[in-house]
Every structure is written in C-alpha cells, then in structure tokens.
Computed example of a mutant assay.
Amino acid sequence: MKKSGHTKTFKVRIRDKHAKVLRAWAFSVNQVWNYCNELSHRSIRERQNWLSGYDLQDYTKGSAKELGLNSATVQMIGHEYVTRRKQFKKSRL
C-alpha cells in the first residue's frame, strides 16, 4: 500500500508588535549566512580548503550575543550552509 504525501499548510498572522523582533532576527540570520558564504568561498579560492560546519563554528564564536541570536542558532546556520553547499556542489551559494 502506497502512502500519499499530503502537506498541510497553515497561515498564521503575526501580530504587529512581534514584527520588529522577527525582522531583526531575520537580518541577523542573513548576516551569519552571508558571512559563512564569503568565508567559505574565500577559503576554497585561496587555500583549496573546504570548511566544515565545525570549522565555521570557530569563526562565528562569540557573534551570537552581538547579533541577538542564540549561539545554537548561529551554529545551526553554519551547519545548514555546509549541507546546502554540498547538496548543490558549489563553492559559493
């Protein structure tokens, strides 16, 4: 018997009072992603060294407090970046 893959989508309205904080978090996440992208590309180009998620952790250590994010979030962004870089087989996303 074959299971059908149904996806449920929920629409949720975010209250306006939370929008400012969510925009700030989104900006911070984008900053970390772009930093990982630039750092990884530079490492590959200059040293032919493909950075792992753990390597990126060393470079982003201590940035969470300034960005207003949890340190685990910053680490997960680095690991997610490496996963997507490998998935698409590119040196720069």
Score class of each variant (00 low, 15 high):
Met1Asp: 09
Met1Cys: 07
Met1Arg: 03
Lys2Pro: 13
Lys3Phe: 03
Ser4Phe: 07
Gly5Gln: 08
Thr7Arg: 00
Thr9Arg: 13
Phe10Ser: 08
Lys11Ile: 09
Val12Arg: 00
Val12Pro: 04
Val12Asp: 01
Val12Gln: 07
Arg13His: 13
Arg13Cys: 11
Arg15Leu: 13
Arg15Thr: 07
Asp16Leu: 13
Lys17Pro: 05
Ala19His: 04
Lys20Ser: 13
Val21Cys: 06
Val21Trp: 07
Val21Thr: 14
Arg23Met: 06
Arg23Ala: 09
Trp25Asp: 02
Ala26Ile: 11
Ala26Leu: 09
Ala26Thr: 13
Phe27Lys: 12
Ser28Leu: 00
Val29Ser: 03
Val29Cys: 02
Asn30Gln: 15
Val32Leu: 02
Trp33Phe: 15
Trp33Gln: 02
Asn34Glu: 11
Tyr35Glu: 15
Cys36Pro: 06
Cys36Thr: 09
Cys36Phe: 09
Glu38Ile: 12
Leu39Ile: 13
Ser40Met: 00
Ser40Ile: 06
His41Ile: 08
His41Arg: 08
Arg42Lys: 12
Ser43Tyr: 08
Ser43Ile: 03
Ile44Met: 09
Ile44Asn: 03
Ile44Gly: 00
Arg45Val: 15
Arg45Gly: 11
Arg45Cys: 14
Arg45Trp: 14
Glu46Gln: 02
Glu46Phe: 03
Glu46Ser: 04
Gln48Arg: 07
Asn49Gln: 10
Trp50Cys: 07
Leu51Val: 02
Leu51Pro: 00
Ser52Gln: 05
Gly53Glu: 06
Asp55Trp: 01
Asp55Thr: 09
Asp55Val: 09
Asp55Pro: 06
Gln57Cys: 10
Gln57Met: 09
Gln57Trp: 04
Asp58Asn: 11
Tyr59Glu: 01
Tyr59Gln: 07
Thr60Asp: 13
Thr60Met: 15
Lys61Val: 11
Lys61Ile: 11
Lys61Gln: 15
Lys61Met: 13
Gly62His: 04
Ser63Gln: 14
Ala64Trp: 00
Glu66Thr: 14
Leu67Glu: 03
Leu67Cys: 00
Leu67Pro: 00
Leu67His: 02
Gly68Asn: 05
Gly68Ala: 00
Leu69Val: 12
Leu69Lys: 09
Asn70Met: 04
Ser71Val: 04
Ala72Leu: 13
Ala72Asp: 13
Val74Gln: 03
Val74Phe: 02
Gln75Ala: 06
Gln75Ile: 10
Met76Thr: 11
Ile77Val: 14
Ile77Met: 01
Gly78Thr: 06
Glu80Arg: 05
Tyr81Leu: 02
Val82Lys: 05
Val82Gly: 04
Thr83Arg: 10
Arg84Phe: 10
Arg84Gln: 08
Arg85Glu: 05
Lys86Trp: 06
Lys86Val: 12
Gln87Asn: 01
Gln87Pro: 00
Gln87Lys: 14
Phe88Asp: 02
Lys89Glu: 15
Lys90Met: 12
Lys90Val: 14
Arg92Lys: 15
Arg92Ile: 15
Arg92Val: 15
Leu93Cys: 04
Leu93Ile: 15
